[in-house]
Design a protein around this nucleic acid. Structure first.
Lengths: 110, 110
DNA sequence: ATAAAACTTAACCTATAGGTTAACTATATT
DNA sequence: AATATAGTTAACCTATAGGTTAAGTTTTAT
Protein backbone atom coordinates (compact mmCIF):
# COMPACT_ATOMS: atom_id res chain seq x y z
CA UNK A 1 0.00 0.00 0.00
CA UNK A 2 1.40 3.39 -1.03
CA UNK A 3 1.06 5.98 1.70
CA UNK A 4 3.58 8.66 0.71
CA UNK A 5 1.96 11.64 -0.97
CA UNK A 6 3.52 14.98 -1.81
CA UNK A 7 3.12 17.03 1.33
CA UNK A 8 1.59 20.02 -0.42
CA UNK A 9 -1.29 17.89 -1.64
CA UNK A 10 -2.13 16.79 1.88
CA UNK A 11 -1.75 20.41 2.97
CA UNK A 12 -4.30 21.51 0.43
CA UNK A 13 -6.65 18.61 0.99
CA UNK A 14 -6.80 19.06 4.76
CA UNK A 15 -7.05 22.82 4.45
CA UNK A 16 -9.92 22.43 1.99
CA UNK A 17 -11.69 20.10 4.40
CA UNK A 18 -11.38 22.72 7.13
CA UNK A 19 -14.59 24.41 6.07
CA UNK A 20 -18.06 23.07 6.84
CA UNK A 21 -19.31 24.54 3.59
CA UNK A 22 -16.78 22.64 1.54
CA UNK A 23 -17.38 19.47 3.49
CA UNK A 24 -21.03 19.95 2.60
CA UNK A 25 -20.11 20.21 -1.05
CA UNK A 26 -18.15 17.01 -0.78
CA UNK A 27 -21.14 15.33 0.77
CA UNK A 28 -23.34 16.57 -2.06
CA UNK A 29 -20.85 15.33 -4.61
CA UNK A 30 -20.67 11.97 -2.89
CA UNK A 31 -24.15 11.27 -4.24
CA UNK A 32 -23.61 12.48 -7.79
CA UNK A 33 -21.66 15.03 -9.84
CA UNK A 34 -23.05 18.56 -10.09
CA UNK A 35 -22.48 21.72 -12.08
CA UNK A 36 -20.95 24.85 -10.59
CA UNK A 37 -24.30 26.63 -10.80
CA UNK A 38 -26.14 23.82 -9.09
CA UNK A 39 -23.68 23.93 -6.22
CA UNK A 40 -23.78 27.73 -6.02
CA UNK A 41 -27.54 27.43 -5.83
CA UNK A 42 -27.57 24.71 -3.18
CA UNK A 43 -25.12 26.56 -0.96
CA UNK A 44 -26.47 30.07 -1.52
CA UNK A 45 -23.24 31.36 -2.93
CA UNK A 46 -22.61 33.68 -5.83
CA UNK A 47 -20.93 32.10 -8.84
CA UNK A 48 -17.62 33.89 -8.20
CA UNK A 49 -17.66 32.73 -4.60
CA UNK A 50 -18.43 29.15 -5.57
CA UNK A 51 -15.82 29.35 -8.26
CA UNK A 52 -13.19 29.99 -5.62
CA UNK A 53 -14.26 27.00 -3.57
CA UNK A 54 -14.20 24.85 -6.66
CA UNK A 55 -10.69 25.94 -7.51
CA UNK A 56 -9.52 25.21 -4.00
CA UNK A 57 -11.08 21.76 -4.02
CA UNK A 58 -9.65 21.16 -7.46
CA UNK A 59 -6.12 22.15 -6.44
CA UNK A 60 -6.47 19.83 -3.48
CA UNK A 61 -7.47 17.18 -6.02
CA UNK A 62 -10.61 16.47 -4.06
CA UNK A 63 -12.71 16.97 -7.16
CA UNK A 64 -12.28 16.66 -10.88
CA UNK A 65 -13.86 18.98 -13.35
CA UNK A 66 -15.02 18.54 -16.91
CA UNK A 67 -16.59 21.04 -19.20
CA UNK A 68 -19.57 20.01 -21.31
CA UNK A 69 -20.76 22.85 -23.49
CA UNK A 70 -21.01 25.87 -21.28
CA UNK A 71 -21.60 23.81 -18.19
CA UNK A 72 -18.84 22.75 -15.85
CA UNK A 73 -19.46 19.51 -14.03
CA UNK A 74 -17.49 18.49 -11.00
CA UNK A 75 -17.28 15.12 -9.30
CA UNK A 76 -15.64 13.78 -6.18
CA UNK A 77 -12.15 12.41 -6.60
CA UNK A 78 -11.90 9.94 -3.74
CA UNK A 79 -8.14 9.46 -4.00
CA UNK A 80 -7.17 12.54 -2.01
CA UNK A 81 -9.83 11.67 0.51
CA UNK A 82 -8.19 8.28 0.78
CA UNK A 83 -4.74 9.82 1.26
CA UNK A 84 -6.02 12.09 3.99
CA UNK A 85 -7.74 9.22 5.74
CA UNK A 86 -4.63 7.12 5.54
CA UNK A 87 -2.47 9.87 6.93
CA UNK A 88 -4.69 10.09 9.99
CA UNK A 89 -4.79 6.32 10.21
CA UNK A 90 -1.08 6.22 11.00
CA UNK A 91 -1.67 7.94 14.31
CA UNK A 92 -5.16 6.96 15.18
CA UNK A 93 -6.31 3.39 15.25
CA UNK A 94 -9.83 2.34 15.96
CA UNK A 95 -8.82 -0.52 18.19
CA UNK A 96 -8.19 1.81 21.05
CA UNK A 97 -5.84 4.13 22.76
CA UNK A 98 -4.01 2.44 25.59
CA UNK A 99 -1.26 5.00 25.83
CA UNK A 100 -0.33 6.71 29.02
CA UNK A 101 -2.00 9.94 29.95
CA UNK A 102 -0.09 13.20 30.00
CA UNK A 103 -0.34 13.17 33.75
CA UNK A 104 1.33 9.79 34.01
CA UNK A 105 4.00 10.82 31.56
CA UNK A 106 4.88 13.87 33.63
CA UNK A 107 4.93 11.81 36.79
CA UNK A 108 7.28 9.34 35.13
CA UNK A 109 9.82 12.08 34.43
CA UNK A 110 10.50 12.71 38.08
CA UNK B 1 -21.35 4.75 16.64
CA UNK B 2 -21.51 8.50 17.18
CA UNK B 3 -20.42 10.45 14.13
CA UNK B 4 -21.95 13.89 14.73
CA UNK B 5 -19.43 16.41 16.00
CA UNK B 6 -19.81 20.15 16.35
CA UNK B 7 -18.91 21.47 12.95
CA UNK B 8 -16.49 24.06 14.25
CA UNK B 9 -14.35 21.39 15.86
CA UNK B 10 -13.98 19.53 12.60
CA UNK B 11 -13.29 22.86 10.92
CA UNK B 12 -10.46 23.55 13.31
CA UNK B 13 -9.09 20.03 13.29
CA UNK B 14 -8.92 19.78 9.51
CA UNK B 15 -7.55 23.31 9.20
CA UNK B 16 -4.87 22.48 11.76
CA UNK B 17 -3.93 19.36 9.81
CA UNK B 18 -3.51 21.47 6.68
CA UNK B 19 0.08 22.28 7.51
CA UNK B 20 2.97 19.86 7.06
CA UNK B 21 4.70 21.41 10.05
CA UNK B 22 1.76 20.72 12.32
CA UNK B 23 1.33 17.24 10.94
CA UNK B 24 4.99 16.73 11.80
CA UNK B 25 4.31 17.86 15.34
CA UNK B 26 1.47 15.40 15.57
CA UNK B 27 3.76 12.65 14.37
CA UNK B 28 6.34 13.63 16.99
CA UNK B 29 3.66 13.63 19.66
CA UNK B 30 2.43 10.25 18.53
CA UNK B 31 5.59 8.76 20.02
CA UNK B 32 5.56 10.63 23.31
CA UNK B 33 4.51 13.96 24.87
CA UNK B 34 6.89 16.90 24.58
CA UNK B 35 7.36 20.37 26.00
CA UNK B 36 6.76 23.52 24.00
CA UNK B 37 10.50 24.23 23.97
CA UNK B 38 11.37 20.76 22.77
CA UNK B 39 8.97 21.12 19.88
CA UNK B 40 10.19 24.63 19.05
CA UNK B 41 13.68 23.20 18.98
CA UNK B 42 12.82 20.21 16.83
CA UNK B 43 10.96 22.31 14.29
CA UNK B 44 13.30 25.29 14.29
CA UNK B 45 10.68 27.70 15.41
CA UNK B 46 10.84 30.56 17.88
CA UNK B 47 8.88 30.07 21.06
CA UNK B 48 6.22 32.62 20.09
CA UNK B 49 5.79 30.93 16.72
CA UNK B 50 5.50 27.49 18.29
CA UNK B 51 3.14 28.90 20.86
CA UNK B 52 0.73 29.86 18.08
CA UNK B 53 0.81 26.39 16.58
CA UNK B 54 0.20 24.90 19.99
CA UNK B 55 -2.80 27.12 20.57
CA UNK B 56 -4.24 26.20 17.20
CA UNK B 57 -3.78 22.49 17.83
CA UNK B 58 -5.22 22.92 21.29
CA UNK B 59 -8.32 24.73 20.05
CA UNK B 60 -8.76 21.97 17.51
CA UNK B 61 -8.53 19.60 20.48
CA UNK B 62 -5.80 17.68 18.73
CA UNK B 63 -3.55 18.03 21.76
CA UNK B 64 -3.92 18.49 25.48
CA UNK B 65 -1.62 20.58 27.55
CA UNK B 66 -0.52 20.41 31.16
CA UNK B 67 1.82 22.66 33.03
CA UNK B 68 4.42 21.13 35.32
CA UNK B 69 6.50 23.75 37.05
CA UNK B 70 7.58 26.18 34.38
CA UNK B 71 7.39 23.56 31.66
CA UNK B 72 4.35 23.04 29.47
CA UNK B 73 3.90 19.52 28.23
CA UNK B 74 1.59 18.65 25.37
CA UNK B 75 0.33 15.27 24.26
CA UNK B 76 -1.73 13.99 21.37
CA UNK B 77 -5.47 13.80 21.94
CA UNK B 78 -6.54 11.11 19.52
CA UNK B 79 -10.26 11.82 19.75
CA UNK B 80 -10.31 14.68 17.26
CA UNK B 81 -8.12 12.65 14.99
CA UNK B 82 -10.70 9.90 15.25
CA UNK B 83 -13.55 12.31 14.44
CA UNK B 84 -11.73 13.60 11.39
CA UNK B 85 -10.99 10.10 10.19
CA UNK B 86 -14.59 9.09 10.67
CA UNK B 87 -15.86 12.07 8.77
CA UNK B 88 -13.76 11.13 5.78
CA UNK B 89 -14.79 7.52 6.18
CA UNK B 90 -18.36 8.41 5.31
CA UNK B 91 -17.36 9.28 1.79
CA UNK B 92 -14.35 7.17 1.19
CA UNK B 93 -14.36 3.47 1.74
CA UNK B 94 -11.35 1.30 1.30
CA UNK B 95 -13.24 -1.46 -0.40
CA UNK B 96 -13.16 0.35 -3.66
CA UNK B 97 -14.69 3.00 -5.81
CA UNK B 98 -16.97 1.53 -8.40
CA UNK B 99 -18.82 4.71 -9.14
CA UNK B 100 -19.26 6.05 -12.58
CA UNK B 101 -16.73 8.45 -13.99
CA UNK B 102 -17.58 12.08 -14.62
CA UNK B 103 -17.40 11.36 -18.32
CA UNK B 104 -20.01 8.64 -18.08
CA UNK B 105 -22.21 10.81 -15.92
CA UNK B 106 -22.17 13.59 -18.49
CA UNK B 107 -22.88 11.16 -21.28
CA UNK B 108 -25.83 9.81 -19.31
CA UNK B 109 -27.41 13.26 -19.15
CA UNK B 110 -27.91 13.45 -22.90
C1' DA C 1 -27.83 38.44 -35.31
C1' DT C 2 -29.13 39.04 -30.56
C1' DA C 3 -29.67 37.77 -26.22
C1' DA C 4 -29.38 34.73 -22.35
C1' DA C 5 -26.87 31.24 -19.68
C1' DA C 6 -22.92 29.54 -17.40
C1' DC C 7 -19.18 30.51 -16.09
C1' DT C 8 -14.37 33.14 -15.47
C1' DT C 9 -11.48 36.96 -14.22
C1' DA C 10 -10.24 41.17 -12.02
C1' DA C 11 -10.30 44.65 -8.47
C1' DC C 12 -11.43 45.36 -4.00
C1' DC C 13 -12.34 44.56 1.13
C1' DT C 14 -11.95 42.38 5.75
C1' DA C 15 -10.34 38.72 8.68
C1' DT C 16 -7.01 35.33 9.95
C1' DA C 17 -2.45 32.58 9.59
C1' DG C 18 2.10 32.57 10.64
C1' DG C 19 6.09 34.70 11.29
C1' DT C 20 9.01 38.58 13.67
C1' DT C 21 10.93 41.38 17.80
C1' DA C 22 10.27 43.23 22.32
C1' DA C 23 8.40 43.18 26.80
C1' DC C 24 6.28 40.67 30.62
C1' DT C 25 5.30 36.65 34.01
C1' DA C 26 6.18 32.61 36.59
C1' DT C 27 9.26 29.08 38.18
C1' DA C 28 13.83 27.22 39.19
C1' DT C 29 18.72 27.73 40.11
C1' DT C 30 22.81 29.77 42.22
C1' DA D 1 18.41 38.29 46.26
C1' DA D 2 19.76 37.90 41.54
C1' DT D 3 19.68 35.50 37.34
C1' DA D 4 18.32 32.13 34.00
C1' DT D 5 14.66 29.20 32.07
C1' DA D 6 10.30 28.46 29.91
C1' DG D 7 6.65 30.43 28.41
C1' DT D 8 3.13 34.06 27.25
C1' DT D 9 1.45 38.34 25.33
C1' DA D 10 1.45 42.35 22.43
C1' DA D 11 2.41 45.02 18.34
C1' DC D 12 3.56 44.59 13.86
C1' DC D 13 4.05 42.74 8.94
C1' DT D 14 2.88 40.02 4.76
C1' DA D 15 0.19 36.56 2.44
C1' DT D 16 -4.03 34.15 1.68
C1' DA D 17 -9.18 32.98 2.37
C1' DG D 18 -13.53 34.15 1.20
C1' DG D 19 -16.70 37.22 0.11
C1' DT D 20 -18.36 41.37 -2.98
C1' DT D 21 -19.44 43.90 -7.56
C1' DA D 22 -18.36 44.69 -12.30
C1' DA D 23 -16.75 43.26 -16.66
C1' DG D 24 -15.33 39.68 -20.03
C1' DT D 25 -15.79 35.02 -22.50
C1' DT D 26 -17.88 30.98 -24.46
C1' DT D 27 -21.81 28.33 -25.74
C1' DT D 28 -26.71 27.84 -26.51
C1' DA D 29 -31.27 29.46 -27.57
C1' DT D 30 -34.43 32.58 -30.15
Amino acid sequence: METKVKSSHLDKAFAALGSAKRRGMIETLSYRPASVSQLADEFNLSLPAMHKHIRLLEKAQLIERRKAGRTNFVALDRQSLASAQQWIGQFYTEWGDNRETLENYIASLK
